[in-house]
Design a protein around this nucleic acid. Structure first.
Length: 710
DNA sequence: GAGTTTGAAACT
DNA sequence: CAGTTTCAAACTC
């Protein structure tokens, strides 16, 4: 770790980065997974720190920290106040300490004074130094933590400025994001009392109950928050869990945001009542949030609605200013951006339904998402998992990639109307589209969007899919799964799949973006999985095929009953017959984080050699992938058997096409390298999209409980 | 940026 | 399973 830290953060390393065509492997720290129920709690005992630049005073409830445009931190009360208990804080820190006390370690033993930067301001964060998110729940990202620490150490003398090294790194790497924010977030998670900490919870509950009761009476409630400024109303409209607001916790928002909206600090706002009210409301989430079950979430929702009614539109509007960026203003194209990530803009679903691309892709929403009331965040891990369970209980393949691998033969390119030459991806939509008006020629059509032709399974009308019309041999030379099946067996052996669709030009925008291309040094990136994926990005798109799709993000679920049909489907899925949700080249960095570092393999996925696997977590009554003590997924060991059995079963897709497992022996994948030299560790283990953030998970919780916990 | 269209997802 | 509603992305102006 120390070596990593030293090397990774050293100026030399950064300099090398500028010289090397090899993209630095993204750290795992930025990845946030949905740990299995059995996985180590997101809340870890490891102490997190964050840089001074983004210092967040968890102790001082009187110190709302506001981020200014120059990345400095304004802490009105910090100037003349000290930490409540600096010694205590310092003793718990694992690394550098800002001499001025502006940097602190998070302490889950401490009170719930939490402060969060407004993570929603993507624009702001672009020029923030940020780095690997310290997410891991098993310590796999400690290297990132160390990196962070090292970074911090370099900036001791400039607590409010970006560390020199970091600045260099930023300029060179460009995309390091929110190291501090993420650290803070994680720390918050750590700090937030939860059901796992009955004492804390009880204490908080007491406050909460009091607050709520007062609130419901319509009276103002002072929920032990600082009277000062900086209390952000992020949670007001979105009813963010108050754990981030209570007790002086302030969700930070950018000054720029305030300026932009000509807003005053809440404390100065005539709506202080609102602030308090909201705070009180939010407080009730302190002990419920991510750890609450669907029922409690309903209750929260109820309360939220109740409170919401007390806010007039003006207030709400005002509140929104303080909260997450106005989606109308900040809405980003859902299509992947330069980061290869999608952004969702969910407003009503809390990002807990398949409507949400992020959720559907199995990733946490990113800060850059413009969603409202998002629950698809690490803080709500349990909620997310429960939701997934519910959805998967209805459709075990709900989270399976929508595009099924097709031919391994390079499809024929085609010249589009605009003169662009595109090559359709080999495969078909799992369920097929149902287009009526778009003639499958617009991105409304999932097939078209996925760059695949329509298949017999589609129920589209007037199909004119550029990549293949239903019932007509596609450009890829095949239409249905029958033809696909003929090639599936070759999938793993086919270099095309291994090397990725880069071999052919895809019309998908992501494919044209260098960052989405397969890394030049896939083996390097793959081999570093779990070690340095701090900047990992997940391409949440559900349609993009990926050569690395054989490396499923996490273990798939299984049907509640040993339904052969589904089982087989999942097997196929796990075997890589499905295209995954990630863009080519992304997995090495984005998947890697899901591949626990050696020695901790599966830990991040909640395997831990336990009988309880993420599979069961996700609703599967019958674990699809049992992890034995040797950390070898059952699927890997049984794969050969499966290969031989090659049972033909109907897919759950409307196509009812039969899917045969690939010939390749999965254990070969799971243990070593393939032709390409890549490590394919665990590639066949999980079938479902990783529950990781596209970029960084959203920072603070700012959201009401999911409407319908599905 | 606002409004409309579209089709998947969710619901009944 | 079909019809309807809801939703968010895609699209248009």
């Amino acid at each position: 770790m120390g070596l990593f830290c030293t090397f990774q953060d050293s100026p030399i390393f950064n300099y090398i980065n500028t010289l090397s065509p090899i993209k630095p492997v993204k750290g795992t720290s930025e990845i946030q997974v949905f740990p299995g129920l059995n996985s180590p709690p997101l809340i870890t005992t490891s102490k997190r720190i964050h840089t001074p630049r983004r210092s967040i005073d968890l102790k001082s409830s009187d110190c709302p920290i506001l981020f200014q445009e120059d990345n400095n931190i304004a802490c009105p009360s910090q100037e003349n106040s000290s930490l409540k208990n600096p010694e205590d804080t310092l003793t718990k820190m694992t690394a550098s300490v800002n001499p001025e006390g502006s940097m602190e370690a998070f302490d889950n033993e401490d009170d719930n004074v939490l402060a969060l930067p407004n993570h929603a301001e993507q624009g702001q964060e672009d020029h923030e130094l940020s780095g690997p998110k310290l997410v891991d729940n098993d310590g796999k990202n400690k290297s990132c933590l160390q990196s962070n620490i090292c970074e911090n150490l370099t900036s001791v003398d400039q607590p409010y400025d970006q560390p020199l090294v970091a600045q260099v790194a930023q300029s060179q790497l460009g995309k390091r994001r929110r190291l501090q924010f993420e650290a803070a977030q994680d720390s918050i998670v750590e700090s937030v009392p939860c059901s796992k900490d009955p004492s804390n919870t009880a204490a908080i509950s007491e406050v909460v109950e009091s607050s709520v009761s007062q609130t419901t009476r319509g009276s103002r409630v002072n929920v032990s928050k600082p009277s000062g400024i900086g209390l952000h109303l992020n949670s007001i409209v979105n009813a963010m869990p108050l754990r981030y607001l209570s007790g002086g916790v302030k969700k930070l928002t950018s000054i720029s945001s305030l300026k932009q909206d000509n807003m005053q600090l809440p404390s100065a706002s005539p709506n202080s009542n609102l602030v308090e009210n909201v705070s009180a409301k939010s407080e009730e989430y302190v002990h419920q949030t991510p750890y609450s079950n669907a029922e409690s979430m309903k209750m929260i929702e109820y309360q939220e609605k109740f409170d919401q009614r007390s806010l007039n539109s003006e207030q709400v509007e005002r509140v929104e200013v303080y909260g997450r960026p106005n989606p109308k203003k900040k809405r980003k194209k859902t299509e992947s951006n330069g980061d290869g990530c999608k952004y969702c803009n969910c407003k009503k679903t809390k990002c807990l339904k398949l409507y949400c691309d992020c959720f559907a892709a199995g990733i946490y929403c990113a800060d850059s998402c413009s969603c409202q009331g998002c629950f698809n965040r690490p803080e709500y891990e349990n909620t997310v998992l429960e939701t997934r369970q519910l959805i998967e209980s209805r459709d075990p393949l709900a989270f399976a990639p929508k595009i099924v691998h097709g031919s391994t033969k390079p499809p024929r390119s085609q010249i589009l109307d605009d003169g662009d030459q595109v090559t359709p991806l080999a495969g078909r939509h799992k369920r097929g589209c149902n287009c009526k008006k778009s003639m499958c020629m617009k991105k409304y059509c999932e097939c078209y969007q996925a760059n695949v032709g329509c298949s017999e399974g589609c129920r589209c009308e007037g199909c004119q899919n550029t990549y293949g019309i239903k019932g007509v041999p596609s450009m890829a030379g095949e239409t249905g799964m029958e033809s696909v099946n003929e090639n599936i067996g070759d999938s793993f052996d086919d270099k095309n799949l291994i090397e990725g669709p880069n071999r052919v030009r895809s019309s998908l925008p992501e494919f044209h973006k260098p960052h989405n291309l397969s890394p030049q040094t896939p083996s390097f990136q793959c081999s570093t999985h779990g070690n340095d994926a701090s900047e990992a990005r997940i391409f949440p798109g559900r349609y993009v095929t990926s050569p690395e799709s054989e490396c499923p993000p996490y273990v798939t679920t299984t049907p509640k009953s040993p339904n052969d049909s589904v089982q087989m489907d999942e097997e196929s899925y796990a075997n890589g017959e499905f295209m995954d949700d990630f863009s080519p080249g992304e997995w090495s960095s984005t998947r890697a984080p899901y591949l626990p570092p050696s020695g901790m393999r599966f830990s991040s996925l909640g395997f831990h050699g336990s009988s309880v696997t993420p599979v069961s977590l996700f609703g599967g009554a019958k674990p699809f992938c049992n992890i034995s003590d040797d950390d070898t997924p059952t699927i890997l060991r049984d794969s050969s058997i499966q290969q031989h059995n090659k049972v033909k079963v109907a897919s759950s897709s409307p196509n009812k096409k039969r899917v045969s497992p690939p010939r390749i022996r999965l254990h070969e994948l799971g243990s070593s390298t393939l032709k390409s030299g890549r490590k394919f560790i665990l590639k066949a283990v999980s079938s479902f999209p990783p529950l990781t953030p596209c970029i960084d998970s959203k920072q603070t919780s700012n959201h009401p409980p999911p409407d319908d916990t599905l």
